[in-house]
Design a protein around this nucleic acid. Sequence first.
DNA 1: GCCAACGTTGGC
DNA 2: GCCAACGTTGGC
Length: 155
Amino acid sequence: MARKHWLMKSEEDEYSIDHLQSDGTTRWVGVRNYEARNLMRDEMSPGDRILYYHSNAKPSGVAGIAEVASESYPDPTQFDPDSRYHDPKASKEEPRWFLVDVRFVERFPRVVPLSEIKADEGLSEMVLVKRMRLSVQPVRKAEFEKVREMAEQGD
DNA sequence: GCCAACGTTGGC
DNA sequence: GCCAACGTTGGC
């Protein structure tokens, strides 16, 4: 099956690509949006490529590439009363929230800012541009490659 | 820090 | 099942 492409957002202060690089692989805990969950649970496969996006950053933008490193499985933080991601309505018999592991692949030589992505005609259909507030989203292969080229080109 | 967008919750 | 209230995301 063909490899798919995604974009995943992380607050730079919270978990930046540098942090992912030093960890190597991480569990993508804390997604509490059903659409994002469904994508991780049903659509992602190991080896799929991910544009790693820094939100709440200066500037916000795509900072590098990661890859899906596991099949989906229940997010363990939903069961943990001490976690900020605890969900009292979830149980181990009926988990609500799923995640995948994410592995570092590369850090771009520069962040591709959202403003440049918005300004690029070829990227006007990106989910990132058209919809707010979706932290896991599909990306077309051509969009993925274009953003990577923009990172290499400098500004 | 402001605030618009928008997903979720809960009363009815 | 509607929809107002509420909470969160995330750009700026």
